[in-house]
């Protein structure tokens, strides 16, 4: 069951963390890390932001294992999708 203390405070903190990360992602975009590291950094920041939203706003932290499994399975689905298609393109010698 959901906890009885329905406080808004943690959400405010998450919101400001997300603001901060948005500023960070713009900031690092001005730095040339070279290929492919610029993308890696941008992706990493986006993943952190996404995890914050999923864990706190979407209450996955503290929800049933079933919800966690369904989140995990969609991530696995995406990984399969990307990895198999992209390995084909890499093997076909694109960039």
């Amino acid at each position: 069951m959901a906890e009885h203390n329905h406080s808004l405070k943690p959400y405010v903190m998450v919101l400001f963390a997300l603001f901060g990360l948005t500023a960070l992602t713009v900031g690092v975009a001005y730095v040339d890390f070279g290929h492919p590291w610029s993308d890696v950094v941008a992706l990493a920041i986006a993943l952190v932001k996404a995890s914050l939203v999923v864990a706190f706003f979407m209450h996955v932290k503290g929800s049933t294992s079933m919800v966690k499994i369904s989140v995990a399975s969609s991530i696995v689905g995406v990984l399969i999708f990307f990895m198999i298609i992209l390995t084909d393109y890499m093997a076909r010698g694109f960039s």
Binding site: T22, T25, V26, A29, Y30, V31, D32, F33, H35, P36, S38, D39, A42, L43, I45, A46, K49, A50, V53, V54, F57, M58, S95
Partner: peptide, 30 residues
């Protein structure tokens, strides 16, 4: 609420990969 947050999630990925590719000189590309 979950649906709305998901919409937010998509934008979190769209923003850097559409808007921020060319800020560092010719960067972003290969």
């Amino acid at each position: 609420g979950l649906y709305w947050h998901f919409v937010d999630l998509v934008w979190i990925f769209l923003f850097p990969f559409l808007y921020l590719l060319a800020l560092a000189g010719g960067g972003g590309g290969h």
